[in-house]
């Protein structure tokens, strides 16, 4: 099943990596330029009309964001995740709101939480979840939420972190 789909896509758009998870789920990596076209092709021609989700994964070490468009074909009941790697620096991606009206919401969230821009997506720059946020977009890996919370909010005394072995060293053999 998947083999046929891959062949069909490959005729039109290049696929970089294919990783099959099960009989029902597969992930493809495609080029940034052809990603939305591939998604559209999957939707219009191959019956993957249900957009399950669109999300991003921050690969800080590689300096990339991975966008995943997870599409579902409700007729043959399989899922394909279309992955796109985009540069982390000034991340921009083509908007797909013409395909599904809901995708604008996802893109709005990604803009806010990851700082990925989708030019022309409706309301993409409106605040969605956060209010007045002026820090690194919080879902980025380089944003340390614990440190932020510790500095920003008042907290009661938290734990002192007594490590058993260190504590025993102090009590049982302090000079060794």
């Amino acid at each position: 099943m998947f083999q046929k789909i891959i062949e069909k896509i490959n005729l039109k758009y290049p696929i970089d990596v294919v990783s099959k998870k099960s009989d029902k789920l597969m992930f493809l990596t495609v080029h940034k330029n052809t990603a939305v076209n591939t998604v559209q092709y999957l939707k219009d021609d191959l019956g993957f009309k249900h957009l399950v989700l669109l999300t991003a994964v921050d690969f800080l070490e590689q300096g990339k964001f991975q966008l995943t468009y997870l599409l579902n074909n409700p007729d043959i009941k399989i899922d394909i995740g279309v992955r796109v790697l985009i540069e982390r620096e000034s991340a921009t991606m083509e908007s797909a709101h013409s395909l599904w009206p809901t995708i604008a919401t996802y893109q709005r969230e990604l803009r806010e939480m990851f700082g990925i821009d989708f030019p022309d997506s409706p309301g993409v720059n409106d605040e969605f979840i956060l209010e007045g946020w002026n820090n690194t977009p919080p879902y980025r890996r380089d944003f340390d939420t614990k440190a932020f919370a510790a500095n920003f909010y008042h907290q009661r005394n938290s734990r002192e972190n007594n490590d058993p072995s260190a504590h025993m060293k102090k009590n049982l053999y302090p000079n060794e």
């Binding site: 938290s158 007594n162 058993p164 504590h167 009590n171």
Partner: peptide, 26 residues
Amino acid sequence: EAIDLVAVAQTKNGDSGLRPRVDYGR
């Protein structure tokens, strides 16, 4: 991070002498 180990007892063999303290604010 609701549980913290605090020193309470004399340390004996196989016992660190610490006991968990629970923070019901966490």
